[in-house]
């Protein structure tokens, strides 16, 4: 076979380098995916040996499952709200703390701290704060003459979940802060010397310079937010498996529905079909964001595709 180009290292080095990743991908990603697909073609209940192949019946049922479809729409709506808010919030906080302030290190720590508190502790704290009868939130509102609000039930529970999610945006703030500190000061100064307003400097200099980091935040945010399951469960009434049944409708996201079918109804086959469809949905959203990045992400170096 003809060889084009030249080779500096023996071919086996290639395999040695990619080997660990390929092995990890095969056994921890590809194999579980295929396994889940196989399970999705069965009526497996998660433990009993009495399962059988049922073809694509689970998929057919899923396309007529109104609860699952409603959960999917709700999840997309939740993502559309949370991702922009968390990206904008973390960028706003980062800009606020990227200035020469007194005790700036202290404030950075204060805003970062919630993101390293374990989610379970954060959820319990918010459940106590938002409890209708004994929570501090209603006590404070009561002072202002506002009637108690049932924060943890429909329809307000959705906003309680948003608050819980945004509580940890300090993590994103640190990444944004690092990006902002990488923006060359001379570029912003040059723009200002040329008469650009503060907004124009931000819009036309700062934002393009940090756009790869914003893109990273958006794409990881979309993927993780679509898959959220723990937070709605923790905000619900108790913490056992049956909790999933007590998750309010407004916070019943797609993965909550999947969890319910897996562990409450023992429908591992149907749950696997739900996961496969969701995998394709997430893939589609990821590709959409990736495609859109060509329009708004600025790289300081040319990508291979642009050469």
């Amino acid at each position: 076979m003809a060889r084009n180009g030249w080779s500096r290292y023996p071919r086996r080095h290639f395999y040695l380098f990619v080997g660990p990743w390929v092995a990890g991908f095969l056994f921890l990603t590809a194999a579980p995916l295929l396994y889940a697909f196989a399970v999705s073609l069965t009526n497996f209940d998660g433990s009993s040996p009495r399962w059988r192949w049922i073809g694509f019946r689970n998929y057919v049922e899923l396309f007529g499952d109104q609860a699952a479809q409603a959960a999917l729409v709700r999840t997309i709506g939740y993502t559309a709200m949370v991702v922009p808010l968390s990206v904008a919030g973390s960028l706003g906080l980062a800009m606020l703390l990227n200035r020469r302030l007194k005790a700036v290190g202290f404030w950075r720590t204060v805003f970062f701290l919630p993101s390293i508190v374990p989610m379970v502790a954060t959820a319990i704290m918010w459940k106590l704060i938002l409890n209708r009868d004994s929570g501090i939130m209603n006590a404070v509102l009561g002072v202002a003459g506002i009637r108690p609000i049932s924060w943890l039930v429909d329809p307000v529970a959705f906003y309680a979940l948003v608050i819980l999610t945004l509580w940890g945006l300090g993590g994103g703030m640190v990444i944004m802060l690092a990006a902002l500190q990488g923006v060359p000061a001379e570029l912003e100064e040059a723009a200002r010397v040329d008469g650009a307003s503060r907004w124009s400097v931000f819009r036309h200099v700062t934002l393009p310079m940090i756009s790869p980091v914003v893109y990273f935040q958006v794409i990881t945010g979309v993927i993780t937010t679509l898959q959220i399951v723990i937070q709605p469960l923790l905000l619900a009434e108790t913490s056992s498996i049956s909790t999933v049944g007590q998750v309010p409708q407004s916070t019943r996201l797609y993965m909550v529905q999947v969890y319910q079918d897996f562990f409450l109804h023992n429908r591992f086959g149907y749950g696997s079909a739900m996961l496969w469809v969701f995998f394709l949905v997430i893939l589609a959203f990821t590709l959409l964001v990736q495609r859109s990045s060509r329009l708004w992400v600025h790289y300081e170096v040319d990508s291979d595709a642009d050469r």
Binding site: L26, F27, A30, A31, P32, L33, L34, Y35, A38
Partner: peptide
């Protein structure tokens, strides 16, 4: 890779 992943999945099943 596909063969290996398929093998691993079948083993799991």
């Amino acid at each position: 890779a596909a063969a290996a992943a398929g093998g691993a999945a079948a083993t799991s099943l």
